[in-house]
Design a protein around this nucleic acid. Structure first.
Lengths: 213, 213, 213, 213
DNA sequence: CATGAATGAGCATTCATTCAT
DNA sequence: AATGAATGAATGCTCATTCAT
């Protein structure tokens, strides 16, 4: 017999696990509220009401409104980056054809993530309107993801299947811009068929250019 | 001589002209405030104070806060579209080389517009956070500008200097996405040299692709 | 004709005068509320309601709740000190008998001030419970008034009608303590007759001591 | 052997004794919190945290926040009155000189109590700001202590070493006021030397008066 | 027409208290 | 008996909007 509470595999006591679960639920509820009505139109009471809990309870889990949106965004970004980084890696590719296929897989993964729940891109789109700090964070996120893309490009240049004179950093921003463009287009018209054509168009621009032969 | 007030060439009386001027000033002041502090952090009093006028006066020119931001955005969009459409037209080009040069001109025009006053892209970025309607409007704007781009592409396809199998609509979104990406990059790091490289990278992707020859 | 608003003798425009009046009214209403229910039990809404005005209006005149109580106390202290300093001065007295009479006048003035409105001492008594800063301020006030008393004593020592070996500063605190004691007694039992006896007892202690001859 | 739990000399079971101890600890912790941060700024959680116990446990020992402060003040008052009444009694004195020495002892005892822990007078000072009832109680306390002093004076008058015409009740308030004044002065400047002079000044006023011979 | 005083809906946040475990 | 999670009443404060002057 010991006074120490039983812990699970992650070393968390029952209470800690419950607390983590509730935080998870609040993050999800807040995500839903923010995405549906927007950050400024959402009250803490809305988030609590969605979970059927008292609004005072919210403050047992998060400091304040700004705190929760920070966690919501962080969670969202992690989900996106996690889904992206999961099965792909720059080093996994040797030839242009492989790269093209990898691009397609990444594009499909992105389409799957965003397409599965349009609230995700919708919230990302609204995020810069929260405040200056969040706006900066979103710009930083765009830059960060461009670095991911740059890593892929860099690998291709080194292996010789991408142009040697590629301005890797700038091109990465351009490519990510195309992806962003397709996401915005999807928000207006979430037709899967159209998403597919957007992905194809992006790859066509990347590999074939737009000029006639 | 009549009792009718004198009117200028546009058929506006002196009073109407004065009113239009004041509306113009309010729009400019509101633009400045919204871009600097953000829509939600800006009060009507801030806008009025910037003009040295009473904040009650504001309501003689605009319905409410939502009304003014609508006009600010409209004005902003017009400035952008106006600057773009001014000297370029899809029909003015016959060859790929011409088109490439036209692209460069358009890119420079955009860089000039946005680069000259970063408050413009900053406000556009924050706009979707104002409310759902504004978010929709921004998505619509992205679509509208894509139609502009599509017109250029369409012209090129018809004249044969762009690929016959080009998915014009989807490609237009991709290209505009690249432009959007360069704008976002400029917001993080407004170095003109970098902007120039971003523009070049966009054109390189468009015309040369990223693949090695 | 001038654009300058008409001003009264104090150089205040009509609007400024009105504003000052309203501030005065708010201070009075707040004084009443704080004295009756206590600072912490009083809401801004209570103060506003007492004046029949919206509670938002309050914030046009005072920064916040702490601000108004600061002004209420300041006003209160000024009223007390003003009433005290009005007709008395240490230099106006030459003999012990004069001083004794002056003491009686000051005592009566104090009794008149506090006795006329028991909310004044009641609020002063509650003031240290507002917060640490106010508590310090009250202690400072006690010290300040002791300096007033000390000035009287000092004058008497110099003119020779008070003991040469008087510890002026310490004695001043003792005397003011007696006054404070009579105020506290008055709060419990505001019988004028009793106040009179308290004043007489204070003077008797001061001049005759308590010892039998 | 019976089912009755063992009891100590006071007739308390072990559990009752433990309960009393915990109450004692809570009172002490609450006293510390209230004196340091003030009643209104102190939360029940602060008190519990100071004892390292759950704040829910608090309510097993005291009804509510108002209840604990009542006990804290009661305890405080008892400590003061106890210390005062311990070794002194009106009847223990026969002559003015004895009385003067007794006064000095009482003064020293008070200075020792308050000076040893300034939180005591600080809490008493803040107490009237808790609510009306507590304010009344503090005034009552002042009156009660004046009755103590009055008993000493009464004894002196009866034995003839104090003035026969002394207004005992009023003079008692005046004397206690001086003591109160010295306590307030100590709160501002807790210099022991100064406290000593204040005590001496009080006795000088009492026995010698302030007038020159 | 300009003004700014007045307004109150609205919201984030705190914290004493309860009660299931 | 101890705990601390849950609760919601309570309140200070902001600011868009109105309207009398």
């Amino acid at each position: 017999m010991t006074a120490m509470p039983a812990t699970d595999r992650a070393g968390l006591s029952r209470a800690e696990r419950r607390k983590a679960e509730t935080r998870r639920e609040i993050i999800d509820a807040a995500f839903a509220c923010f995405a549906e009505r927007g950050y400024h139109a959402t009250g803490i009471a809305d988030i609590a009401a969605r979970l059927g809990m008292g609004h005072g309870t919210f403050y047992r889990y998060f400091e304040n409104k700004r705190d929760i949106v920070e966690h919501v965004i962080t969670d969202l970004v992690e989900r996106i980056l996690g889904a992206l980084g999961a099965e792909n890696a720059p080093e996994a590719v040797d030839t242009l054809e492989d790269y093209r296929q990898q691009s397609a897989r990444i594009g499909e993964a992105l389409a799957s993530i965003f397409g599965s729940d349009l609230r995700m891109p919708r919230l990302l789109l609204e995020a810069p309107g929260i405040d200056q700090a969040m706006s900066d964070r979103m710009l930083e996120l765009f830059d960060t993801t461009a670095q991911f893309t740059a890593a892929y490009l860099d690998h291709g240049v080194r292996l010789g299947y991408l142009r040697a004179d590629l301005d890797v950093r700038a091109t990465a921003h351009a490519i990510n811009g195309m992806i962003l463009g397709s996401v915005l287009a999807a928000l207006r018209d979430p037709d899967p068929e159209r998403q597919h054509r957007l992905g194809a168009a992006i790859r066509a621009v990347m590999y074939d250019g737009i000029a006639a032969r």
